[in-house]
Design a protein around this nucleic acid. Structure first.
Length: 418
DNA sequence: TCTGGGGTCCTAGGACCC
DNA sequence: TCTGGGGTCCTAGGACCC
């Protein structure tokens, strides 16, 4: 019988901010999305004030209770680094760790004795060494471990660890828990099933598998099997190669000129190319989109264009292609709100070989290696194509961006937490 | 004149996740 | 005034082929 655990960081982005800013501990804190738009992470103190996940921050600020809330712009390099630290603590103590998202890791604990105590020590170690408070859920399948984790978060009397290996414990939990708590059952599916009178997890698990398959196709059937204790989703230690890279942004202010839109998309292409090279890939497919604001009453315009390209990881080539596509969808007299670029059809970048590479390919690989080296040494964006413009006029607000404590030497203050 | 069935590939759209 | 960004998987339907 396999045993899985899911460990995840509590209010992860907020906890990462707190690790380096002790004055933020114990006070309500939120981290905001790009442009300081919505709340995407909230501490328990902030949740207690009624701030909802994804709530527009300018609306929350109208409530008097929210004026006392501390907030930060999101700082992804910091969160990525804290995630790596968390992984390292776990990987040193558990044979098999699968990072699932920036703040969640699945563990294979099959065969380990005294699991609850083991998981408590794990939590303590992550807290002490990576400075991240966590919760742990244990179960015979990933879906059950995920549910147990959710219960550990909601019920503070469990002290951060919930074990749902025992079928009787599970049955009680299923009878009391709404279907929407289940990993893989989203809002639409829950609504659909609720209309049929299926509201608790117990109701769902009781259904005939054929009926579930008919209602929810294979994905729903897999969720049900997992909830019944039959493991269908194994731990994947080697993440499958990625299939797409997307770089998209809503703008800090509406973009009306071709030049500005072109610079923004060139900057997105530059970032996408960096990600591509980090993964050692070349892209054979590229698409570009732009649209107006669906919220502000402007005329709605949305367009995208895609093309197959000669596989490449060259920033300048990708910019050229992206701008060429953008030109075909550009219409004047609209106020653009958001745009983006997506890459796909990946192939491994060729190893440099004098025998098989064209001169241009060798030149490109060398130029990109030099570009990446400079930016790694002196910070991202130090060296970048002129097409991306001098000033990111389209960039959003990030009014309270914390220092990149862990990744930029010149911003590293005395790290109080470590 | 009668008028099949199955396979593949592609794309768009929906749903879900964090 | 101010409403995130980046992914995955599945299905349906059309085009095309034999």
């Amino acid at each position: 019988m396999p045993v899985f655990a899911l460990i995840d960081g509590n209010s992860f982005y907020c906890s990462a901010e707190r690790a380096f800013a002790p004055e933020l501990r114990g006070v309500p804190l939120v981290v905001l999305s790009n442009n300081d738009g919505c709340a995407i992470a909230r501490t328990t103190e902030a949740k207690a004030l009624g701030i909802k996940m994804g709530e527009p921050w300018h609306l929350a600020l109208r409530r008097p209770a929210c004026k006392q809330v501390e907030w930060r712009s999101s700082n992804y390099p910091l969160y990525g680094d804290m995630s790596r630290r968390m992984y390292e603590v776990l990987a040193a103590r558990v044979p098999q760790v699968e990072p699932y998202s920036i703040d969640e890791m699945f563990l294979d604990l099959t065969g380990l004795p005294d699991l609850e105590n083991f998981c408590r020590r794990l939590r303590d170690d992550v807290r002490r060494l990576a400075k991240i408070p966590t919760c742990v859920g244990i179960g015979p399948t990933k879906t059950i471990a995920k549910l147990a984790n959710r219960i550990a978060k909601d019920d503070y009397t469990l002290h951060g660890v919930c074990d749902l290996r025992d079928p009787a414990t599970r049955a009680t939990c299923y009878a009391q828990s709404p279907l929407s708590m289940v990993w893989g059952i989203g809002g639409k599916t829950a609504e659909k099933l609720n209309k049929l009178g299926i509201t608790s997890i117990a109701d769902f698990v009781r259904l005939a598998p054929e009926q579930v398959r008919e209602l929810l196709t294979v994905t729903g059937a897999r969720v049900q099997a997992e909830l019944r204790g039959q493991s269908c989703i194994p731990l994947t230690l080697m993440p499958p190669p990625r299939q797409a890279i997307a770089v998209t942004r809503s703008f800090g202010r509406l973009v009306t000129s071709w030049g500005e839109l072109r610079e923004a998309v060139a900057a997105f292409a530059t970032r996408a190319a960096e990600k591509l090279r980090t993964d050692g890939l070349q892209a054979g497919h590229l698409s570009v989109f732009a649209h107006t604001n669906p919220h502000n009453g402007d005329a709605w315009y949305s367009a995208s264009r895609a093309a197959q390209i000669e596989p490449t990881a060259d920033t300048l080539t990708l910019i050229t292609e992206a701008v060429r596509l953008l030109r075909t969808i550009w219409r004047p007299n609209f106020r653009y709100f958001k745009a983006g670029i997506m890459l796909g059809d990946f192939a491994p970048a060729q190893k440099q070989s004098r025998l098989f590479s064209t001169r241009d390919a060798v030149k490109s690989a060398r130029a990109m290696a030099a570009l990446d080296a400079v930016n790694a040494r002196f910070g991202s964006g130090t060296l970048r194509p002129a097409a991306t413009g001098m000033i990111k006029t389209w960039a959003g607000r990030q009014a309270r961006h914390s220092p990149r404590y862990t990744t930029r030497a010149e911003e590293m203050l005395i790290a109080k937490a470590f």
